[in-house]
Amino acid sequence: MVDCVVKNWQGEEVGQASLELRVAREESAAHIVHRALVRQMTNARRGTASTKTRAEVRGGGRKPWRQKGTGRARAGSIRSPLWKGGGVIFGPKPKDYNIKMNRKERRLALRTALNSRAEDLLVVENFAEQLPRPKTKELVQAIERWGVEPGAKVLLILREFTDNVYLSARNISTLKLMKAESLNIYDLLLADKIVITSEALAKIQEVYSDQ
C-alpha cells in the first residue's frame, strides 16, 4: 500500500490518499519490469528499414565486357555489390520486432513499476476549475508549489483531459500528460516526479486492480 498526502492548487495539504495494488514479489520484481520495458521499447520499432539486393536494383542485365582479353577484372553485372550503384550485401529488410507478453504479466509489471515510484508520487486535487482559460504560467507555478523542482521531468496523470488543462500543459517541454487508463512502463520510469489527481488515483485503483 502506498500512502500519499493530497495537496490543493495552492500546495497546501488537505488530506490523505492511498493506492493499494498487488505487485510482484521482491525477487522477481526487477525482472518482470525489465521485460515489460524491453517489450514496449522493442514494439515501438517500425521495422521498415529496407535495402535492395543485386537482384532488386535496376539495370545490370548485360555483361559489361567479355570475360577474357581486356586486362580488366572479370565482371558479370554493373549492379554487383562491389560497384557503385550496385546492390547491398546483407542489408536490412522489413522485420517485425514485436515481443509478446501475457496481459496479466504486463499489468503486474505496470503495478510494480508504479508502486516502486512511491517516493516520487504526488497526489493533488482536481484542478481543472482553477484554469478557466489556458495559462501555461499558472500551471508551471502550481507544479512548483506541489514540490516539483524546476526542470524536473513530470508525468501528470489525469482522469480526463479538459481543453484548458491540455492547452496549458502542451508547451511545457518537461511535462507529459497521460490518462489514468493509459499508463505505460516507459513513462512511469522516465519521469522524475509523478503527479496524479485524486480522481485519476481512484481510476488507477479501479482499472489496474488484479481482480
Rank of each mutant, 00 (worst) to 15 (best):
168 S>W: 06
165 V>M: 00
13 E>Q: 03
103 R>W: 10
202 A>F: 05
49 A>C: 03
93 K>H: 15
158 L>I: 03
211 Q>N: 07
72 R>E: 01
39 R>W: 00
163 D>K: 13
86 G>E: 05
189 L>W: 12
119 E>Y: 15
20 E>H: 09
15 G>D: 06
121 L>Q: 05
36 A>L: 02
181 E>Q: 13
66 R>D: 10
101 M>A: 10
91 G>M: 03
130 Q>P: 09
106 R>V: 01
51 T>D: 10
172 I>H: 02
204 I>K: 03
113 A>C: 15
65 W>N: 00
86 G>Y: 01
171 N>I: 00
144 E>Q: 13
147 G>K: 15
71 G>T: 11
102 N>A: 14
211 Q>L: 12
205 Q>W: 10
206 E>H: 08
67 Q>D: 03
40 Q>K: 04
1 M>C: 04
49 A>S: 06
150 P>W: 12
155 L>Q: 05
198 S>M: 11
102 N>R: 15
52 K>Q: 08
99 I>N: 14
210 D>M: 11
16 Q>M: 15
190 L>Y: 12
184 N>P: 01
32 I>Y: 02
150 P>T: 12
29 A>Y: 09
45 R>E: 03
108 L>Q: 06
137 K>V: 12
44 A>W: 14
9 W>H: 02
134 P>Y: 07
53 T>I: 07
132 P>C: 08
15 G>M: 12
148 V>T: 09
87 G>D: 02
141 Q>I: 05
180 A>R: 04
69 G>T: 05
31 H>F: 10
23 V>F: 03
47 G>Y: 04
139 L>I: 03
122 L>S: 09
42 T>M: 09
143 I>E: 04
11 G>A: 03
111 R>D: 06
11 G>F: 07
82 L>N: 04
174 T>N: 12
50 S>M: 08
115 N>Q: 13
169 A>R: 09
73 A>K: 04
115 N>H: 13
47 G>F: 07
128 A>R: 05
53 T>Y: 11
177 L>E: 00
18 S>I: 01
50 S>D: 04
105 E>T: 13
173 S>M: 05
177 L>C: 08
110 L>H: 14
192 D>Y: 08
6 V>Q: 08
161 F>T: 00
202 A>K: 13
77 S>D: 02
121 L>R: 09
150 P>D: 11
92 P>M: 07
103 R>D: 15
27 E>W: 07
115 N>C: 11
167 L>D: 05
125 E>G: 08
108 L>W: 02
122 L>M: 10
52 K>E: 06
69 G>N: 05
135 K>F: 03
206 E>V: 01
149 E>L: 13
191 A>T: 10
128 A>I: 02
174 T>I: 10
53 T>S: 15
38 V>N: 02
155 L>K: 00
32 I>E: 10
43 N>F: 08
79 R>V: 01
28 S>D: 14
148 V>W: 08
46 R>T: 05
153 K>Q: 13
199 E>A: 07
153 K>H: 15
9 W>E: 06
96 D>N: 12
103 R>Q: 13
90 F>H: 06
208 Y>N: 07
208 Y>E: 00
74 R>H: 01
145 R>C: 11
182 S>R: 12
130 Q>Y: 14
58 R>V: 04
190 L>R: 14
201 L>C: 02
90 F>W: 05
133 R>K: 14
50 S>C: 05
82 L>E: 09
127 F>D: 11
202 A>I: 00
113 A>G: 13
148 V>E: 07
202 A>M: 07
37 L>I: 01
75 A>S: 06
40 Q>S: 10
172 I>E: 01
156 L>T: 01
